[in-house]
């Protein structure tokens, strides 16, 4: 009986420990905002690495996201002749839902996983302890700048991605449905309200925070050698995916 309880309880306690650790990271990071206390150099470095280097992958993802949504809408357009629907799909669905979601997942896979792997490697090779011995707070030096870089860069990347997604939608609409670009853009501007764009971008910033917190947590709490690094990366991408969907749900429920 007690063995059963322990077996059922183990995932609960470990989930609670993870949740507690992540909350602590988020709280300590927030405290760095006032008084403003962020390592400038590290921030710039992280922004370049996370943002600029992810540009191609985000562009490709956004292109597909826009294209796929228009294609799905096209089925109904062909059926019911509702051409305005295309603009709704490309505009509303992509900008508000699928764009931030897919770009967030990609960012998690690339930047979040990378960050977790790097922090995990630094932890198991004692590089984090080396920082402490050099009297440098690893949290201030490693976690805070990267966390804020992720928030800012995912926001910017999603903004760029939105443009690419509309372009992808336009191209697919032209190729598959034969809708002229002009008509497409008219439809988009008629169907999209500023709120869709804003909510999509707000979401992406929150996703950035989630990815930063999750990847830092799993990176810094790594146990046991090279295998541990693999586990940390895996736990990080899985945790991120769950958190992204949960956050998305709550923002959607609050926003509508």
């Amino acid at each position: 009986m007690s063995a059963l309880v322990r077996r059922l309880g183990a995932p609960v306690t470990s989930a609670a420990r993870d949740a507690g650790g992540m909350t602590l990271i988020a709280w300590r990071a927030l405290r760095a905002l006032y008084p403003l206390n962020i390592e400038r150099e590290e921030l710039v470095r992280a922004m370049y690495k996370f943002g600029y280097m992810s540009l191609p992958i985000v562009a490709v993802t956004a292109f597909f996201a826009g294209g796929i949504m228009v294609l799905q809408a096209a089925m109904y357009v062909a059926q019911y002749g509702a051409y305005t629907f295309v603009g709704w799909a490309a505009g509303f669905v992509t900008l508000r839902e699928m764009g931030p979601l897919l770009i967030g997942l990609m960012f998690s896979g690339r930047v979040g996983a990378n960050n977790a792997a790097e922090l995990a490697t630094m932890t198991i090779t004692e590089q984090v302890d080396a920082l402490r011995v050099l009297a440098i707070d690893p949290f201030r030096y490693l976690v805070v700048p990267r966390l804020f870089a992720m928030i800012v860069m995912l926001f910017c990347l999603t903004a760029i991605g939105d443009l690419v997604a509309i372009g992808g939608g336009a191209l697919i609409a032209r190729l598959v449905l034969g809708i002229e670009f002009r008509l497409f853009f008219d439809s988009v501007s008629a169907m999209v309200v500023m709120g869709d764009l804003t909510i999509g971008l707000v979401k992406s910033a929150v996703f950035g925070l989630a990815i930063g917190v999750v990847s830092s947590h799993f990176g810094l709490t790594v146990k046991g050698g090279a295998r541990g690094v693999g586990h940390a990366v895996n736990a990080c991408v899985v945790g991120n995916a769950i958190l992204i969907f949960v956050v998305d749900y709550f923002i959607t429920a609050l926003g509508t």
Binding site: I57, T61, L105, M106, G109, R110, A113, N114, A117, A120, T121, I124, G225, A226, V229, G230, V233, N234, V237
Partner: peptide
């Protein structure tokens, strides 16, 4: 171990 880490990361992106 770093190679394993980057292979894991890359596979997520490439598969997606």
């Amino acid at each position: 171990s770093e190679g394993v880490g980057s292979a894991t990361t890359r596979s997520v992106i490439e598969c997606s």
